[in-house]
Computed example of a mutant assay.
Amino acid sequence: MDGYLVVAGVLAVGVLLVVAGYTARRLLAPSDPSRAKLATYESGVDPVGEHWAQTRVRYLGYAFLYVIFAVDVVYLFPWALVLRTDLGPASLVEVAIFIGVVLLGLVHALRRGLLRWT
């Protein structure tokens, strides 16, 4: 039972710290809401039209490609350095599966048109 009491105590202290932080912010922070402060603000541009609009995120594709290539390098480079020693056939199968998953990501990027130069 002692372990549960310790966990309950840590949880209680954590909740008290969060409540104390919110209370201190509420008491100490200045509050002067106005129409200009409550207006939507996005990157220094005043909003025009509807307050909600769905936009196309183009950089998400580049982030996807970066993750594919970064993960590829992070895992294959150390494996290639250790390859100088005898790793056995199990390691070769594991790397083949890993490269297959990376190639699957590249095929997905190719099908979405992320690898075009246009």
Results as ranks from 00 to 15, higher is better:
17 L>R: 07
17 L>Y: 02
17 L>S: 09
17 L>P: 01
17 L>F: 04
18 V>P: 02
19 V>H: 06
19 V>Q: 10
20 A>L: 15
20 A>F: 15
20 A>C: 07
21 G>V: 08
22 Y>K: 12
22 Y>P: 00
23 T>G: 08
24 A>F: 13
24 A>T: 14
24 A>C: 05
25 R>F: 15
25 R>S: 14
25 R>E: 12
25 R>T: 11
27 L>W: 13
27 L>I: 14
27 L>Y: 08
27 L>T: 10
28 L>H: 07
28 L>V: 13
28 L>W: 12
28 L>G: 03
29 A>W: 11
29 A>N: 06
29 A>P: 00
30 P>T: 03
30 P>N: 01
30 P>V: 05
31 S>N: 09
31 S>T: 04
32 D>S: 11
32 D>I: 01
33 P>Q: 05
33 P>K: 05
33 P>G: 04
33 P>V: 03
34 S>K: 05
35 R>A: 15
35 R>P: 07
36 A>V: 13
36 A>G: 09
36 A>K: 09
36 A>W: 03
36 A>M: 06
36 A>Y: 07
37 K>H: 05
38 L>H: 06
40 T>D: 15
40 T>M: 11
40 T>Q: 15
41 Y>G: 06
41 Y>E: 14
42 E>G: 01
42 E>W: 09
42 E>L: 09
43 S>V: 03
44 G>A: 06
44 G>I: 10
44 G>F: 03
44 G>C: 06
45 V>F: 14
45 V>G: 04
45 V>T: 15
46 D>C: 00
46 D>K: 15
46 D>G: 13
48 V>F: 07
49 G>R: 02
49 G>C: 03
50 E>N: 07
50 E>H: 10
51 H>T: 08
51 H>V: 05
51 H>A: 14
52 W>S: 06
52 W>K: 06
52 W>T: 08
54 Q>K: 13
54 Q>M: 13
55 T>N: 08
55 T>R: 15
57 V>I: 12
58 R>C: 02
58 R>P: 03
60 L>Y: 08
61 G>F: 08
61 G>N: 07
62 Y>R: 14
62 Y>G: 12
62 Y>L: 14
63 A>G: 14
63 A>H: 10
65 L>D: 04
65 L>C: 11
65 L>W: 02
66 Y>T: 05
67 V>D: 03
67 V>A: 10
67 V>C: 04
67 V>I: 11
67 V>N: 04
68 I>H: 04
69 F>N: 00
70 A>H: 04
70 A>S: 03
70 A>L: 13
71 V>L: 02
72 D>V: 01
72 D>C: 02
73 V>W: 02
73 V>C: 00
74 V>W: 00
74 V>K: 00
74 V>E: 01
75 Y>I: 06
75 Y>W: 09
75 Y>G: 01
75 Y>R: 04
75 Y>N: 03
76 L>E: 01
77 F>K: 02
78 P>R: 02
78 P>K: 02
79 W>M: 00
79 W>D: 01
80 A>T: 13
81 L>A: 07
81 L>W: 10
81 L>Y: 04
82 V>A: 15
82 V>F: 10
82 V>E: 12
82 V>W: 11
83 L>M: 13
84 R>N: 10
85 T>E: 07
85 T>M: 05
86 D>P: 02
86 D>T: 11
